[in-house]
């Protein structure tokens, strides 16, 4: 802040100066802005790395974080179940209708089951649930911790010799890592069941055909892949929410900005992770 302040004070040139002095002052301001941007990025990376190391080191303090896991699992996981199931159900319905529409006359109808199963278990259940929970859980965590930060509750914890990472971050990350696969697993079941019901009710497809399609190309790897992705999304969403919340500054505006940043960062990270999983795990896996 000091250097930034100095740069801005130097950039303000006396009004009497004109011509060459004015152009050199503008150049100076532009270079200073670039330097400030670079410093903030590096500073951000450094803070993120520090926070990651603090979180990892806080895992050893089991007595502090373990009692907090269950309430966080309840808050992040169980209470997120309705929204996850709701999304999965409608995704399954739309997917079966879309598959039936696409396959008409060219592909056997039982491939509707195959498409619903593969898409729900491997992609849509983890990613859509992750994105939904990035909004709900990530924003919740960021707002909660941001409020604690701006009201100096976290400072109070530090004063009382509590490690805020052990007390606030680790239980949320652990709860998210454990509960997200559970939620996504249930979402998989709900999505496929909704697709099944929709196929038998709305489409000219028998229950036997749908189950034949599900079983035709089903592999345990499909579920494994989706659940591992869900666990990673749970870890990332909760940790990003915690980090953005703990970095909150100012008042209510800072808390709101932290919540927004948490959602955006979580959503972007989920999509990047999804692509990385597909590239490095799915691509090399024998079908």
């Amino acid at each position: 802040m000091t250097s930034a302040h100095n740069a801005s004070s130097i950039a303000v040139s006396p009004p009497s100066e004109r011509g060459p002095w004015r152009s050199s002052a503008m150049s100076f301001r532009a270079v200073s802005s670039l330097g400030r941007w670079g410093r903030e990025r590096v500073e951000g990376l450094g803070q993120t790395g520090h926070s990651l190391l603090d979180t990892i080191s806080a895992v050893r303090d089991v007595r502090t974080w373990w009692p907090q896991v269950s309430p966080q699992a309840m808050s992040l996981g169980v209470r997120s179940l309705p929204i996850a199931a709701y999304m999965a159900a409608f995704t399954g319905i739309v997917l079966s209708l879309l598959a039936s529409y696409s396959f008409t006359g060219a592909v056997p109808d039982y491939f509707v089951g195959t498409l619903v199963e593969k898409t729900i278990t491997m992609e849509l259940a983890p990613v859509l649930t992750g994105l939904a929970l990035a909004g709900r859980v990530g924003a919740n965590i960021a707002a909660e911790l941001g409020t604690m930060r701006v009201t100096e509750q976290i400072d109070a914890l530090e004063t009382l010799s509590y490690d805020p990472h052990a007390y606030l971050v680790v239980p949320r990350v652990v709860a998210g890592t454990i509960m997200f696969p559970v939620i996504v697993g249930i979402a998989m079941f709900v999505g496929i069941a909704a697709g099944w019901i929709c196929s038998t009710w709305l489409l000219d497809l028998t229950s036997a055909d749908f189950t034949k399609g599900i079983r035709l190309f089903f592999k345990t790897f499909d579920v494994q892949y989706g659940l591992v992705k869900a666990a990673s999304f749970g870890t990332v969403i909760t940790w990003i929410g915690c980090m953005d919340g703990m970095k909150a500054r100012g008042g209510a505006q800072g808390v709101g900005a932290a919540a927004t940043a948490a959602v955006v960062h979580s959503a972007v990270t989920i999509l990047v992770l999804d692509a990385l999983f597909a590239t490095f795990w799915l691509l090399g896996h024998e079908p």
């Binding site: 269950s70 309430p71 079941f189 089903f218 579920v223």
Partner: peptide, 24 residues
């Protein structure tokens, strides 16, 4: 709270495991 979390985890585990076993 613990019960609700445990029940959810158990339900999710049973659903996934049962679904995989039935499908296979």
């Amino acid at each position: 709270t613990d019960f609700a979390v445990g029940l959810t985890m158990l339900g999710g585990f049973l659903l996934v495991t049962g679904g995989v076993m039935w499908t296979k």
